[in-house]
Nucleic acid binder design. Structure first.
Lengths: 326, 326
DNA sequence: TCAAAAGTGTTATCCTTACACCCATGT
DNA sequence: ACATGGGTGTAAGGATAACACTTTTGA
């Protein structure tokens, strides 16, 4: 027989979506404002109704369309969180919410007709340390690393679940002391800052460190665990771009190679080498020339390209394998 | 304010675990028997209680430990399914269940003291077409591809969500007509067979094809959507092995390189080239010699190795990047 | 003619894959 | 001696990363 431990226990299912677009060269995220006094930024979220919608993805699409009018292109489930950033307690009056985080991509990055106070905002407002396009952000060396070093020194050898100490995690995630900064680890970086008590959400959950005052605000906070979901979305998108042509879900139908490079840089968070990027695009055969030129770029006219859908049939994992600093 | 579409709607949260181990050279999965008349194989599953456990992972670990006595090592959340393989309908008497699938690894692959009828069973009993260690399984050419071709021919150009036709999906997933068979796509293969109505679960859900009679049984079915969860686990483990040292969660403390290769073959599902595998292990520095030799292997004694934990600090993505046929 | 952006050519290095042979033990 | 599995060396080809210069337009 099926092993089954506990009796049925009803819980509410929240669908929370990180809806990503690009506005010019800035990656943006659809955010609303919390209804409470904090007015914190919040990702759009709604409840899942299994009677109305057969699958979670169908439920999410219907819900976003209805509320914002936005047609979602690519949708991917990210992670299901059992806690919303605080401990559940016996006697809680609020219903328990399990939140299912999703990543969605859409082309409408301008703030056109959007519902009820929601707006697209640059994702780097929430994660300033993730933007290395103009070199390493000064706040890492000036504010984050000093605070993390003090935090690590308080218990330098305590291992986490993977056997890594605080010092080692600081080194590997933020690139201190010869470590590398890998964009795909956006979630781990945020979780490290949360654990160290350096982000506003930690203070709200009663886990603030005295260091938070010295480090100052590290990005704008969000409601509940929404910044954690956004960090998951950023990391996943950065990884996915390398083996799926998801980037074209954000591009217009036709585009120049420089525009494509700017988009890859916006997502990956670092600057890319022009020639190598072009060779990569060429060799991966994900685009084809339309034959037209654009002279709207302000220099020599640029050839226009479009996504070559046939790659989906030709190659098992088509994507732009942008390197750390190609 | 936060966009919020529907009123609270309580749903039951089911945690379903694909608990993987290895018995000799066989990858195995912990399976129980369904309590109903079908006696289908079932993955262990239980309900999540947010009052007792702060996170989903903590809940899962506690629950498995309590029921089976198994200590779980590596645990990873896979996917949350809103449907259990059938449509929810207004008036259903059963509570709606959202099932959260997880992958767990443990070393106890023998059938020691296990609870209530649960047993470790070879995963290839459920996915015989995934085992290419001795070459392409005959059933692919003899039974699967003929049936899929008939199914594809009935509507050869209908695109799925990614714009791929039935013919193209058959080619890309099962390696027909010059396509490649990529082990990581285990879930897509199962879903294709389900969609084509060729697996027992499709019949049960009222989606059987007449072709199911000719193709014959394609692997043993499981309760609800459990085979889908297992397929997800297999694909994820195969992918993860390449950039995380998860394989050592299944190995004993010390092992020979041949034993490690057998394990990599068991997971990836195909045969590996001996010299290249050894060079890969050497260059990735994930192991270190213990200095001892084993003469239990029945030929020349083999050097013994252990996992080198330090790689976790040294390299951002340590794993065994086994190729398609290295 | 000059600023601005597009576009190209070449080389060194590393990684992947493929190939075939020798070695140490137990029976 | 031979069967069994352990263990190695080398070379071709392709992918990656680093380098700096030429071309075409608008102002």
């Amino acid at each position: 027989m099926t092993i089954s431990a506990h009796p049925a226990l009803p819980v509410e299912i929240g669908l929370t979506a990180a809806i990503i677009a690009v506005n010019g060269d800035e990656p943006v995220i659809l955010a609303a404002r919390a209804g409470d006094a904090s007015h914190e930024a919040a990702l759009p979220s709604g409840a899942f109704d299994p009677l109305a919608h057969r699958t979670l993805e169908i439920g999410l699409r219907a819900w976003v369309k209805e509320q914002t009018g936005l047609p979602l292109g690519y949708v991917e489930q990210l992670y299901t969180f059992g806690d919303r950033g605080r401990h559940a307690q016996a006697g809680d009056r609020e219903p328990h919410v399990v939140s299912i985080g999703s990543l969605a991509l859409t082309r409408g990055g301008g703030n056109g007709a959007l519902a009820s106070g929601a707006a697209f905002r640059p994702w780097h407002a929430f994660f300033p340390w993730e933007d290395w396009r103009a070199g390493k952000p000064a706040m890492i060396d000036e504010r984050i690393l000093p605070a993390l070093r003090v935090w690590a020194a308080r218990d330098p050898h305590r291992p986490n679940a993977y056997g890594l100490s605080r010092t080692e995690r600081t080194r590997m995630l933020f690139g201190a002391d010869g470590g590398k900064f890998d964009g795909e680890n956006a979630l781990d970086r945020y979780q490290l800052l949360y654990e160290a008590g350096l982000v506003e959400e930690a203070r709200r959950d009663g886990r603030a460190s005295p260091l938070i005052a010295q480090a100052g605000p590290l990005g704008e906070p969000m409601l509940n665990d929404h910044r954690r979901i956004l960090a998951t979305a950023i990391g996943r998108l950065r990884a996915k771009m390398k083996y799926r042509p998801v980037i074209f879900e954000l591009m217009p139908e036709v585009f120049t190679l420089t525009a494509l490079q700017r988009m890859a840089e916006a997502i990956s968070g670092h600057h890319l080498h022009k020639q190598n990027f072009r060779r990569l695009v060429e060799s991966s055969a994900v685009t084809e020339p339309t034959g037209d030129m654009s002279r709207a770029t302000g220099g020599r006219p640029a050839a226009l390209f479009r996504f070559r859908r046939e790659v989906l049939r030709e190659r098992p994992a088509p994507g732009l394998r942008v390197g750390a600093r190609s």
